[in-house]
Design a protein around this nucleic acid. Sequence first.
RNA 1: GGAGAGGUGACCGAGUGGCCGAAGGUGAUCGCCUGCUAAGCGAUUAAGGGGUGUAAAGCCUCUUCGAGGGUUCAAAUCCCUCCCUCUCCGCCA
Length: 427
Amino acid sequence: MLDPRRLRTDLDAVKAGLARRGLDLSEIERAAALEAEERSLKATVEGLRAQVRNLSKEVGQARKAGDVATAEAKADESRRVGEDERKLDAEVARIGAELRDILLRTPNLPADDCPGGASEHDNVIVRVEDYDAGAYGDHQRVPHWEVGATLGILDLERGAKLSGSMFPVFRGQGATLGRALCQLALDRNADAYEEIRPPSLVRTDTMVSTGHLPKFADEGYHLERDDLWAIPTAEVPLTSLGRDEIIPEADLPMRLMAYTPCFRREAGAAGRDTRGLLRVHEFDKVEILSYATPDQAAEAHADILARAEGSLKALGLAYRVLDLCAGDLGASAARTFDLEVYAPGCDMWLEASSVSWFSDYQARRANIRYRPATGGGTNVVHTLNGSALAVPRVWAAVVETYRRPDGSVAVPEALWPYFRGARSISG
RNA sequence: GGAGAGGUGACCGAGUGGCCGAAGGUGAUCGCCUGCUAAGCGAUUAAGGGGUGUAAAGCCUCUUCGAGGGUUCAAAUCCCUCCCUCUCCGCCA
């Protein structure tokens, strides 16, 4: 959520930022008007309330002194003032609700250095690593769903039988591969990030703090009977870990990581790039996340990006880094780098990680603050996160990249420690 | 799931309608005292919003005693709903 104060101190900058996203500005102007109105009415309501409190105090004193007539008179007066207050307060509540509703739906402002642009076509390719289009042999030009089926390590039919399409079943060394990828990511980041194993089902207010609700209600799996949501990413519980807390500055940056299942309904995505593991309803992922002061944010962002890249590099996969333009940025993000891993079999760049800086947008919703070392009031923290490794698409890239002419798949050297001595996946 | 007991500031804990944002204690910070340490003495010690102020300080004011709603001139205190914790029983990896 944007800082409501900026609506009166900094409205032009807010409008300029939202304009970069290509948004209509009438709503934010409405919000600014509501904010001013709410504040002025609130001052009046507070004055009335102060009167009620004082009069009530006088009622008590008069009664104690045995002066019933005065007590009655004061009580009557207080009742009248209270009536006025109630009426006005209802008006303030109505205005406040409308203001919050707009603010909750208004996305974050893009960072100043976020590239301009309207859609994914305007994203900037920052760099391409280890990619040589001519270097792939025919044996690598087989899509992972065929490789997986042939080797018996990916069973999409039975996944569909159990749970429907887009729920993959990994078997044998295929299952090992997925788990090994996660273990690799955890091991590579354990030097700086504390491992958390959060619940996979969370309450509605937990989903709201990260901005996944109310906007993306259609994307989440909801257990109606218990009013719980299956997490779409560990970002949700990890961000809420600090909710309503005040962190000493000395504890920042606070770095966390979690290996969790992720559940996404992918409503409306049916039929579009959904073959094999390109898009699934349930997958495993290692997420890394930081709470930081505004001053630490840039460095924290760079660290997460370097670590997300590091895993792909260690696996010997080709990938590229995209700087998302303002028009393609997620609603909560101020700046995002996407990592796309190259899968030679399907000849596609697959989004494997989104490394985002949310400035104080998420933290304001979640009410995560820190107390500066210098003392004084509290400030809202900045949050940043990214996938250290998301299984299905990286699994696909590994299987396609490492396929040999004989049809087997070599185990990347980085994963040897996790393969019980095996150097190859041959079904 | 059933029965019961609870949720108050960094922590412990008092508080059953007004003088309570809240006694007392612990911890912390500052100062005093003291060869040093310990003990002792004094002061300070929640968060947030609005206003005033060049700003810091200060001052005025509102909100918050698990959350939300209600009763009342007045709610930490009474009523309702929900959440959480603990104990016993039941069930169970």
